Amino acid sequence: MKAWQFSPGETPPLALVEQARPVARRGAVVVRMRAVPLLSYLGDYVRGSLARHYQYPEQPFVIGTNGVGVVEAVGEGVHHYKPGQAVLVHPYVMSTENVDDPVEVLSGLTGTGPQSTGLLNDWPDGSLSEFAAVPATVPVSLEGLTHIAWERLASLGKFIVPFGGLRRGRLAAGETVIVNGASGYFGAAAVLLALAMGAERVVATARDVSALQTLAAMDKRVRPVALGGSIEHDTAALREATDGGAHMAFDMVGRACDANSTLSALGALRRRGRLVLMGSMSVPLPLDYGQMLINQWEVIGHFMYSAEDSRRLIRLVRAGLLDLEAVRLQQYALEELPQAMDAAARMRGLDCTVVKLNG
């Protein structure tokens, strides 16, 4: 099979190679990949500019995170998946041992600390290959969605991360939510998800006015607020847009170099509101102890999603509550990954760059 193999430290670090197809070992499923969405920063990852943030397997590995395809083979001990089933796969692998703090990794991307080295070496490879082997805990059935084109189903990878955060924040139908970073790849998806989950109002915040206007045009429940950088002024604008305060704020700003927009979203919560942190920030997040206490605010740091989140996401699409047609697709062949990574780096809002495989 063909696969994009990443060898950190070598020149070039990334190569399209021919290698043996993976075997369906015990507890594993082999998937014939059909379409793979790309992360916006995959090019920077390959070039090594983000290396200090990532932990690599101890051998060259296939890169790629999410994807969709068809089960090709199953190993011993797999009881629910059969060859021919359409599935979504994702990179989030967690140890199944019955311990308080099971290790976890993102196959095809990174470990999560020294304790995850063993698991990362067990499951190093990602989705940018014609066939991918994954633990049987990973696939999610796409039953009822096979009428949708593979490349559009691949855009589920854009939604699964923010969906995990919105569910962790307990977003309920009828609530008002602020999405901070709504012009970004995951932030725009969070706006659509909040609408699908029944939010009464979604306040979309960012500094990109045109991206906010696009989101606002999709549904009358979306209110755009362009941030200016002043905590005081931005908090006041958000409180006005939420009619006095939001029940929840979802922070998805990536690589933030200041905490201003996050603190503005926090300050715009009503009493007993929740702030979910899923973005990234290069500076500390200063919290006012007294304000946290008086307002009984809840701040939740959240990483990725649960197995149940992935199943519920499929149900949202199957029920017609989340329309994948809203996503703007760009498609590339497997051999065109370098060009696809360049396109992915330019993604904004509802864009999604997909590599299509196997016809």
Rank of each mutant, 00 (worst) to 15 (best):
N98R: 14
L156R: 10
S155A: 15
N121Q: 14
V161M: 08
E104P: 00
L88W: 12
P139E: 04
G164R: 03
P91L: 08
N121W: 14
E104N: 10
F159K: 01
E104G: 07
S127Y: 03
L145G: 09
P135W: 00
S141L: 12
T96D: 14
V89Y: 00
V161S: 07
H147S: 13
V87N: 02
G111D: 11
P139L: 02
G84Y: 04
A132G: 07
A136Q: 14
D101A: 12
L106I: 02
K158N: 10
G126A: 12
P139S: 03
G108A: 11
T117E: 14
P83M: 10
G84P: 01
T112R: 14
L119S: 10
Y92M: 07
M94F: 03
N98P: 04
G144T: 08
G113D: 12
I148K: 06
A136S: 14
A132F: 01
L145C: 11
F131L: 13
E97F: 06
Y92E: 05
Q115F: 06
P91N: 09
V99R: 13
T96N: 12
V99C: 12
D122K: 14
P91K: 02
P83S: 10
T117A: 15
T110A: 14
G113M: 09
A154G: 05
S141T: 02
G126L: 07
T146V: 11
P135H: 00
F159R: 02
S107M: 13
D100T: 09
T110E: 10
V89H: 00
F131E: 10
E104W: 08
T112A: 09
D122C: 13
V99T: 15
S155V: 11
D101K: 11
G157V: 06
A86G: 04
G144E: 13
T137V: 00
A86C: 04
T146W: 05
V138L: 07
T117W: 09
L120A: 12
G118W: 07
V105P: 11
P83R: 10
H90N: 07
L153H: 06
L128E: 08
L119G: 11
L156A: 11
L145T: 04
L109I: 05
E151L: 05
Q85I: 00
E151A: 12
W123K: 04
V103Y: 11
G108H: 02
L156I: 14
V105R: 08
A86E: 03
V93L: 04
